[in-house]
């Protein structure tokens, strides 16, 4: 397995496939042969770049949104997926289980109780994965800036690829946000999931500061 090269962030093939973060004991088997792409033979840089472009195009054109309505913004997800706005035009569809999802929509404020479940669901999603955060509440607390039960800045606890402003964002704004996300994925710049794995300890420290009864495993496989 080759080392991740920060100068070539688009090169997703350099990442370890079993993703065992430092200090954690994965209960998933570490047998790399089971995982696709583990035995990739290093190819010429030009070819690698081309392969990564193709992969990213496929990833961007088929996004599966996890069915987890974390806040009020979830009410605009239904119009988004039904006849009026129909997100399936862009290849976006829902995924009922985190194992099959790759986009997580944080639809608004997060209470600390939900944050715990969100972290767990997020870690269970397979890589690469992206987070779209809706509303002012995830950016700076919004109108809940003095509430004792909601967090104010989401990107302290999990990486966010696209923020969509508004309370709540209209379906058109969501479509525009997805458009940005797709462009970023195609360019290979939406690497929040990778940042999360690299800085897992920092994220964990932040998470443990607000979740007082921490009982999650080191990494939720």
């Amino acid at each position: 397995m080759r080392k991740f090269d920060p100068d070539r962030p688009w090169d997703l093939t350099t990442l370890p496939t079993t993703m065992a973060p430092k200090g954690s004991k994965p209960h998933a088997p570490t047998d790399d042969r089971c995982f696709l792409g583990a035995g990739d033979v290093p190819a010429a840089p030009k070819l690698q770049e081309a392969v990564a472009t193709i992969k990213n195009w496929f990833r961007a054109s088929s996004l599966n949104v996890l069915a987890f309505g974390t806040g009020c913004g979830a009410i605009e997800l239904r119009p988004l997926s039904t006849s009026r706005f129909d997100m399936s035009r862009f290849g976006i569809s829902g995924a009922p289980s985190p194992r099959q999802a790759n986009v997580f929509i944080i639809s608004g404020y997060l209470s600390t109780k939900t944050l715990k479940r969100v972290i767990r669901s997020y870690e269970q999603m397979p890589n690469p994965k992206w987070v779209v955060a809706l509303g002012s509440c995830t950016i700076n607390g919004g109108m809940y800036w003095d509430s004792y039960n909601t967090i104010k800045v989401l990107d302290l606890y999990m990486p966010v690829d696209v923020y969509i402003t508004g309370c709540m964002p209209r379906p058109e704004a969501l479509i525009a946000g997805f458009d940005y996300l797709m462009q970023d994925i195609k360019k290979g710049e939406a690497n929040g999931w990778h940042h999360y794995l690299e800085n897992l300890e920092w994220y964990r420290d932040n998470q443990k500061k607000v979740i007082t009864d921490w009982d999650l495993p080191n990494y939720s496989w």
């Binding site: 600390t112 700076n140 800036w145 003095d146 004792y148 104010k152 800045v153 607000v210 007082t212 009864d213």
Partner: peptide
């Protein structure tokens, strides 16, 4: 869940102070 302070709806619970202490700001 996991609440360790005084019951939050009491008048003498200061939500701003609690918030500044636990939830960092941008």
């Amino acid at each position: 869940e996991g609440w360790q302070d005084m019951p939050p709806m009491r008048r003498d619970f200061d939500t701003v102070e609690y918030c500044n202490r636990t939830h960092p700001e941008r």
